[in-house]
Structure formats: C-alpha cells, structure tokens
C-alpha cells in the first residue's frame, strides 16, 4: 500500500513537473513578449519631467505643471519641451518662468529673503521641543532620585514621625 501511495505521488509530481516548467515558460514568454511594449523614457521626457515637476501650475492649488492637465500647464509643458529641444538647461528654463511668475511658480520656494523662515522654523521648533523634553526628563529623573533618597533617609532617621517607621519601632521594642 505504501509503495502504491509513493508511486502515485512520484508519478503525479513527475507529470506535473513539465506542466510547471511549461507554466514558467509561458510566463517567461509573456514577459519577453511584453518587454518591447514598455516605453523607455527618452532623455527629453526625463528632462521635461524633471523641470515640469519643479514648477507649480499657476491655476491649480499645489499641483505641479507635470501633473496638471490645466490649459496653462499643458502650454507650459509644450514650451518647456521646445526649450529643451533648443538646448536650454533646466536652470535656464526655471529662471524663465521665475522671472515671469515669481517664486510662486516654483514648487519649492528658495530659502532667500523672508522665505528662510519656512525652512528654519520647523528645525527651530524641533530643537525647542527636544530641549524642552530633555529638560523635563532630566528634572523629572532628579526629582525621582531625590524622592527615593528622602524615603531612604526617612526610614533611617529615628526622629521621623511617619506612622510606618513608628510601627516598626514599636515592634522592635
């Protein structure tokens, strides 16, 4: 009986093995078939994505030119593509838009003028909070230590009027 079960198991696994191999092959085939379909982003597209992602769509709230489908954003993308094709650098293109729309058009406002506040403020607050926490923990630990010392001293001193100590004293006597 055992031999029969073993035989069935082995034969089943053997019969399934080619199927799994075949399955693996078909997966491989579909992958290799799909490969040419995957679009390879051209250098131009990469550069366009880089520049357009750094610019804010003027008519949308907090959306980049790259992500936006608004008319202005579409036209801006077209202009950026033309400028890249003309050989302009990313910085030159960003400056072009900054000169016309102001710092508002940049997704990340530069840390200049009053803008430095928004960059420094979170760091300042984190430092302040950290110091506050540190100071509180330290004084808290000190207090705890002092309380323990006090308790210890209290148990040792004979002239203490705490009921617990006097109870012990009574027991001793």
């Amino acid at each position: 009986m055992r031999f029969l079960i073993a035989f069935v198991c082995i034969s089943l696994s053997l019969s399934l093995a080619p199927a799994s191999l075949f399955a693996a092959e078909t997966v491989k085939d579909t992958v290799s078939k799909k490969e040419p379909e995957v679009k390879v982003e051209s250098e131009l597209e990469k550069k366009l994505r880089f520049v357009a992602s750094m610019l804010r769509c003027p008519v949308c709230q907090g959306e980049s030119v790259y992500d936006s489908h608004a008319d202005v954003a579409v036209e801006m993308k077209r202009l950026i593509r033309e400028k890249i094709e003309a050989g302009e650098t990313a910085e030159e293109i960003l400056t072009y838009f900054k000169d016309r729309y102001g710092n508002f058009v940049l997704m990340e406002p530069p840390a200049e003028g009053l803008h430095w506040v928004i960059w420094v403020f979170p760091i300042f607050m984190a430092l302040l909070g950290g110091l506050f926490l540190f100071q509180n923990l330290r004084t808290g630990a000190k207090d705890l230590q002092q309380t323990k010392l006090d308790d210890f001293d209290g148990q040792e001193t004979t002239d203490d009027n705490s009921s617990e100590v006097s109870d012990i004293k009574e027991l001793r006597l």
């Binding site: 003027p58 008519v59 008319d71 202005v72 036209e75 801006m76 077209r78 202009l79 016309r100 729309y101 102001g102």
Partner: peptide, 12 residues
Amino acid sequence: QGRLALEYGVYG
C-alpha cells in the same frame, strides 16, 4: 496658443 500670456506671466 497662449504664448504671449506665458510671456507676461498670466495666471488666468
């Protein structure tokens, strides 16, 4: 195409 609008930094 709205190129002059871009040149003048027009929002809307």
